[in-house]
């Protein structure tokens, strides 16, 4: 049986996944897989990349994780 729709639905935060930190270390970026297999800040699928607070990752560099 096919996996039920978006059972991989993540516990995303803001839409999209730019989490405001309370301290001064900057925002945290979480990238999610889209249903098309791309890694984007916007998306509802499983996590494909995540930065530390203040990090500067580019989600598109992690398409291979989807």
């Amino acid at each position: 049986m096919a996996m039920s729709l978006f059972s991989m639905l993540s516990t995303g935060f803001a839409n999209g996944q730019i989490i405001k930190e309370d301290d001064s270390s900057g925002d945290k970026i979480i990238c999610h897989c889209t249903m098309f297999g791309s890694c984007k800040a916007s998306g509802s699928g499983s996590n494909c990349a995540q930065s530390e607070a203040g990090g500067n990752i580019q989600c598109s560099n992690y398409d291979g994780n989807c």
């Binding site: 639905l9 516990t11 995303g12 935060f13 803001a14 839409n15 999209g16 889209t34 984007k40 916007s42 998306g43 509802s44």
Partner: peptide, 20 residues
């Protein structure tokens, strides 16, 4: 966001429902 995304009767004006 999590409530919006897991709601079975979502409000279509909530940004968290959408992806670019």
């Amino acid at each position: 966001v999590n409530k919006v995304r897991t709601s079975s009767s979502p409000d279509v004006n909530q940004f968290a429902l959408y992806t670019l």
